[in-house]
Simulated scan of single mutants.
Amino acid sequence: MISSSKLKSVDFYRKIPRDLTEASLSGAGLSIVAALAMVFLFGMELSSYLAVNTTTSVIVDRSSDGEFLRIDFNMSFPALSCEFASVDVSDVLGTNRLNITKTVRKYSIDRNLVPTGSEFHPGPIPILNKHGDDVEEDHVDGAFSLSSRNFDSFSHQYPVLVVNFYAPWCYWSNRLKPSWEKTAKIMRERYDPEMDGRILLGKVDCTEEVELCRRNHIQGYPSIRVFRKGSDIKENQGHHDHESYYGERDTESLVAAMETYVANIPKEAHALEDKSNKTVDPAKRPAPMASGCRIEGFVRVKRVPGSVVISARSGSHSFDPSQINVSHYVTQFSFGKRLSPRMLHEFIRLTPYLRGYHDRLAGQSYTVKHGEVNANVTVSP
């Protein structure tokens, strides 16, 4: 039988007995220095890892597009009305262009982003100096106060119902109030609601009738809407088909506008279905049929730092920020010239040689890792 001592004799990894090892001061000092060095290096690495660094690089644009850069976009705002949606451009050189319309188109959409009609043309929203009449505050109210309880009955009772949707805190609403009440009083005297019944002027406090104002897509105050009996509701999903008044807001202009509304309506119209006045009025435009808006087009900007902003804007209306929702979907937002289908095909073909890879998402093509490209996006050199 083989003893344990004979087995140990073939050990290739012999150890020095612990009794032959001895600690020394030099070894202890070296160990302490090494431990401190490791702690210091660990702290430096941790500090470098936690530090936030900002790197700025300047790239010179050597493309041949000239001084200006074209920005194409297609964005959908489910809760921002085309009536007030404004495309604004500004830059560090002082350029400030508000409500660009020449190269921008707007389409009313519903909350599902489905268009509800043709291109929306609200016309200019004026910045008026002559907004209202300065009259005494103790004037007699001439406009009927409307609410969700009686609004539908009034709109079906009178051939023409003109409504001022306002907010008590709004500066422009308070400027309009004397003119509106005076105009309503004059129209009641000329066209008695019970004896004549062709036109009625009303008012709605949007701080009290929130749902009624939301139903009529009111986002700016004051908003004057013209409802016509028999044509204010379409069969097409119940969309409203009425008009917005964009004219001057003094009493004389308002009375003149109201007279045009009843000019072609016979006196007995309150007992008949109105055929509506087809006269074209430049101060009158179709009211938005839905609460959303799709904005598409392009702007040309200088090649300097700046911003493109889409927001609710008007020179003669106020807005309640809590009622304005600018959440949006971006279908396209691109810079520079658009790629032709042939160029896009060639770029995808050469992608493997450019150390990128080609991917598809939601039916569109992208080149990622070294750039993100689709048919509407510029390839940067």
Rank of each mutant, 00 (worst) to 15 (best):
S5A: 15
K6T: 05
K8D: 07
S9K: 14
D11Y: 12
F12G: 09
F12H: 10
Y13I: 10
Y13R: 15
K15P: 06
E22I: 10
L25S: 05
S26A: 12
I32V: 11
F40T: 08
L41G: 04
L41V: 09
F42A: 15
S57Y: 03
V58S: 13
S63R: 14
S64D: 13
D65R: 04
G66W: 12
I71P: 02
A79P: 01
L80F: 01
L80S: 06
C82H: 00
S86G: 06
V92P: 02
V104N: 09
K106M: 10
Y107G: 01
N112A: 15
L113D: 02
P115G: 08
F120G: 00
H121C: 05
H131S: 03
F154M: 13
S155M: 10
V163G: 01
N164K: 12
Y171G: 13
R175M: 14
P178K: 07
W180P: 01
K182A: 12
K182F: 14
T183R: 04
K185L: 14
M187Y: 11
R188C: 12
D196G: 07
V204N: 01
V210H: 07
H217C: 01
P222S: 11
P222Y: 10
S231P: 00
E235S: 12
N236M: 07
H239T: 03
E243H: 11
S244K: 09
V255G: 12
A257I: 01
A263C: 09
I265R: 15
H270M: 14
H270F: 12
S276A: 10
P282E: 14
P286R: 14
A290S: 11
A290P: 02
G292N: 00
R294E: 07
P305L: 13
V309F: 02
S316K: 02
I324W: 06
V326Y: 00
F335W: 09
G336V: 02
H345K: 13
P352T: 09
Y353L: 14
D359P: 03
Y366P: 00
K369P: 00
N374F: 02
